[in-house]
């Protein structure tokens, strides 16, 4: 156990290197695009997209007939975008509000995914051909080509965000103003959704449907405590996400699983999520200006200032005599 532990920490094992590179890059992409998702109030849309992409994976499997990562990714991407479009349609065409629309698409599409994957399971006699790993994620089974795919996706996302940073900032800050400025806000909104979908879908095999949303939401929310500046926030969010992904991946590899179980470690997705959650809690309490500790301190000083002011006013009033007070 001990040597194994150091092997993992020191990246001696090539599998570990592959997995770490994959989850780390995924974290970076998710942290960056997640900042915009959170600010644009799209956090749970990411969650819905992740769930909605499951039937896409199944349909792609039906068509291609094997677990081809790129094909599954394309299928997932198509259904993820369809889900996002459905949410937008329900919200703008009916009196149903966005929260219900998100829940409907999330559950409805995922249900379809379950229906299809059960059919696949029954057809291929008890073997879902690794489709199960899309639901909970199995980073340990990632191979080099998977990591390269994630690296490509991360590059596309970072490049797009880098080029269009100014536009995205305007979009998140004040959509109406951006529209009045003549920016193509609809296009930008769709592009942001596409990036969220791309990132979500690329993360499915590593962290799974349910928890990919965590990588989008938690680091960005944590970064929000540290700064009021969007550029800084994006950088911090990316850093927190990478840190969470690396720590979580290593933890899932080194912490021994339950005694007597077959696999060695804990599932990766939950470990990454928990690492992110810890960083979030630390940020929420300790961040210097927006943190809770700082807030409580400020409330106390407000009360003190008020009391002081009152005492002064009274002292002055008394000095002037009792009639002076209005």
């Amino acid at each position: 156990m001990n040597t194994e532990f150091w092997d993992i920490i020191l990246l001696k094992d090539s599998t570990t290197r592959t997995v770490l590179a994959g989850t780390g890059l995924l974290g970076l992409a998710a942290g960056v695009v997640g900042s915009f998702a959170v600010l644009r109030r799209r956090s749970l849309v990411g969650d819905a997209i992740a769930h909605a992409s499951l039937p896409g994976v199944c349909v792609a499997y039906f068509i291609v007939g094997e677990r081809n990562f790129v094909a599954l990714l394309l299928g997932a991407m198509a259904f993820g975008l369809l889900g996002a479009a459905t949410i937008a349609g329900i919200r703008s065409l009916t009196r149903i509000k966005e929260d219900a629309a998100i829940g409907l698409v999330l559950g409805g599409f995922f249900g379809l995914g379950i229906v299809l994957s059960t059919i696949i399971q029954k057809q291929s006699s008890g073997n879902r051909a690794g489709l199960d790993s899309f639901i909970f994620g199995k980073a340990a089974s990632m191979v080099a080509s998977d990591s390269w795919t994630i690296a490509g996706v991360a590059a596309v996302i970072l490049l797009t965000v880098g080029v269009l940073f100014k536009e995205f900032r305007l979009l998140c800050f004040d959509r109406e103003f951006a529209a009045a400025e003549g920016r193509p806000v609809l296009f930008l909104d769709l592009l942001l959704l596409a990036l969220i979908t791309l990132c979500t879908v690329a993360g499915l095999p590593a962290v799974g449907v349910v928890l990919i949303a965590a990588l989008l939401i938690i680091p960005a929310s944590a970064a929000r405590f540290w700064t009021e500046n969007l550029t800084v926030m994006v950088l911090i969010s990316g850093a927190i996400a990478v840190l969470a992904a690396v720590v979580g991946t290593i933890a899932s590899a080194v912490i021994p699983g339950p005694p007597g179980s077959l696999s060695r470690g804990l599932p990766t997705g939950p470990c990454i999520t928990l690492a992110a959650a810890v960083l979030f809690l630390a940020s929420m309490f300790l961040a210097p200006r927006r943190g809770i500790v700082a807030d409580v301190w400020r409330l106390f000083s407000l009360r003190r200032e008020l009391a002081l002011q009152k005492a002064l006013t009274q002292a002055i009033d008394q000095g002037r005599g009792p009639e002076a007070r209005p």
């Binding site: 807030d295 400020r298 409330l299 407000l302 008020l306 009152k310």
Partner: peptide, 9 residues
């Protein structure tokens, strides 16, 4: 009477 209300800080 001497009411102060603060939202956050």
């Amino acid at each position: 009477h001497d009411v102060t209300v603060a939202y956050h800080r």
